[in-house]
Nucleic acid binder design. Structure first.
Lengths: 336, 336
DNA sequence: TTGATTATTGTTACCGATAACTCAAAGTTA
DNA sequence: TAACTTTGAGTTATCGGTAACAATAATCAA
């Protein structure tokens, strides 16, 4: 491993001079600068970040912790975050918690020991509060994405879950549906709660009675749980439409429905939150509340970097991004 | 920032003793061990990886460099790699080159300065050779995924592009298609070359004349380039089926076709390499050669870790994973 | 010409951990 | 009881950089 000492020796200068050349600090005569540069190239010198970071107390590394790397919403978000980080000269450490609190905690520990400069994260749920407090205790700046955490004041980029949900459900109601099921995420997650609120609000504003037996709770990634729909179809009056609280749940719901012989949208309409990225573009099928995923990442990263690079502790900011109702072919008017 | 010296001072021992307690090395009496542990908890000690890695010359960090984070093939692969890394106790640094050589180079540089222990990467193309040589020069072990690079001997996990392509094209030929277009990736990428070879082989074995004017070259991510299909439809005898060399190209092809008023598969059949992950499961539509993406990542990571942890330089290994033809509804027999 | 100033480079200490060596006290053996 | 082991620590040097200060040479003003 070539170090600045090797270069210093070969160039006949001190290590400090080499360091100065590398960082363009201090004053160096053009002659020595050139000589040092030449030796650096000859020896294929690569600076050692570990050593540099140890003394500077800055790694120029940021961490992005998402909850599901197979979900196009988060991968698009990741692209946004990556682009913004790159533009500002930071390196990005991706991590994936799989909606699993324990994994999240593991990654937070790794983030702490790795001494990243800041963290951008979509928390797994309200209990993530403990992990956030851990970050705060160690003075690691962070920005929260997509999900609000009660009990802590932070910079955060959110979608408007309530309005989005209301739009989706109102769309179904306009189509004549009256028994609309909600396949929701866990109540521990703010988006799931707000999507419920939007669902409830749509009912109330339309003068519809809300039937709690039409509500199912699953983890956002547990779309394999086929039995989840049993509850709905054992009802005396089963639903004629289903609102899935995110895209992955919608996939599961549709697969379950088809496995039971239902046709979507012929027999039952389905809507969901979040779109499907490029892969979904082949057969745009689902009626969705589409969120600007790329901007989630980009804006979140901008907030983080501003926080990092500003001295003063200005107050925390909350950005709320709207979702857009895109009506496609998974919804039909209720047939009489 | 709490260091082992703070702990040592408060516990009334030397820093070395604290280090021994942390790493469970050397001999420590149960009494001091407990006292040190207690102080560590009280002060919320977090070990500093930078310092530790600087002396141990090991970061326990691996890097995964993929070419398209929005492609479900790579995100599934990433999950496989992540799981395998986690199991072996390594942390994983994701990076995304966007099929862009310059970005890849940037990431390789960052990998070198970050002193990761090893790299798992899907190269952008043959010219990545230079980046691989850079890694080798600095003695960073690496494993190549998905794409072969001529001119360098490495551990590598590949799909059987030739056989997969042949299967797809033979499927089309069985359906009666005779004018089959190939929308391929750039010739700089081994999978694109092999998919061409499979395409050619299928023609030859079926006694079909291959018409070079039916072949279009695009980057694997350049599916926005709508004009690419112009060439095909200005032909006197336009194709009746299209083989897209990967999933992203297929998305673009289908969107282009629809924009031109063609119906798939009614007017034209489409097949492609690689499936669409969970997002594609809603409306499984495309006939594909599906590759075991998760295993690409998992096996690649296993190779890397074995290479890392073994002293001796055993010879390089090449794993070839088969693809599976999945016939769905994007293909129809040629109507007379 | 001389003291002051500026430009260029070097020295030393330190970032936070660990390897290698040292050393005192306690325990063992003959 | 003297010599030898074993146990449980501590000391020092080092990993590869950089900050802060020091030192020398070159230039300049008076």
């Amino acid at each position: 491993m070539i170090t600045i000492y090797d270069i210093a020796a070969k160039a006949g200068v001190s290590a400090m001079t080499v360091s100065r050349v590398i960082n363009n600090t201090g004053r160096i005569s053009e002659k020595t600068r050139k000589r040092v540069r030449k030796v650096m190239e000859e020896l294929h010198y690569i600076p050692n970040m570990l050593a540099r970071s140890l003394v500077s107390q800055k790694t120029h590394l940021l961490s992005l912790l998402i909850t599901d790397i197979t979900n196009p919403f988060y991968t698009t978000l990741a692209r946004g975050a990556e682009d913004a980080a790159k533009k500002a000269g930071y390196r990005l450490l991706f991590a994936n918690s799989d909606e699993d609190y324990a994994k999240e905690k593991d990654y937070i520990d790794m983030i702490l020991t790795t001494r990243v400069d800041g963290v951008l994260l979509a928390p797994t749920g309200d209990h993530s509060l403990e992990n956030l407090n851990q970050l705060r205790k160690h003075h690691i700046p962070f920005v929260v994405l997509d999900r609000e955490i009660p009990g802590i004041d932070v910079d955060v980029v959110l979608g408007d879950s309530k309005a989005g949900a209301r739009n989706l459900v109102e769309h179904l109601i306009r189509l004549g549906h009256r028994r609309i099921a909600l396949v929701n995420g866990l109540q521990d997650v703010s988006t799931a709660r707000l999507r419920y609120t939007g669902y409830e609000e749509a009912h109330r504003l339309s003068g519809l009675q809300l039937d709690e037996s039409l509500i199912v709770h699953l983890g956002y990634r547990d779309f394999h749980d086929d039995s989840a729909l049993d509850q709905l179809f054992q009802l005396e009056q089963p639903p004629t439409a289903i609102f899935a609280a995110n895209n992955m749940l919608a996939v599961g719901v549709i697969q379950s429905l088809r496995a039971r012989g239902f046709h979507v949208p012929g027999d039952i309409s389905v809507v969901c939150f979040d779109d499907f990225g490029p892969a979904g573009a082949i057969n745009p099928f689902l009626t969705v509340a589409s969120q600007p995923a790329y901007q989630f990442g980009q804006l979140g990263m901008q907030l983080l970097i501003e926080r990092l690079e500003s001295e003063n502790n200005y107050e925390f900011r909350k950005i709320m991004l709207p979702s857009q109702l895109i009506v496609r072919s998974s919804t039909l008017p209720l047939s009489p």
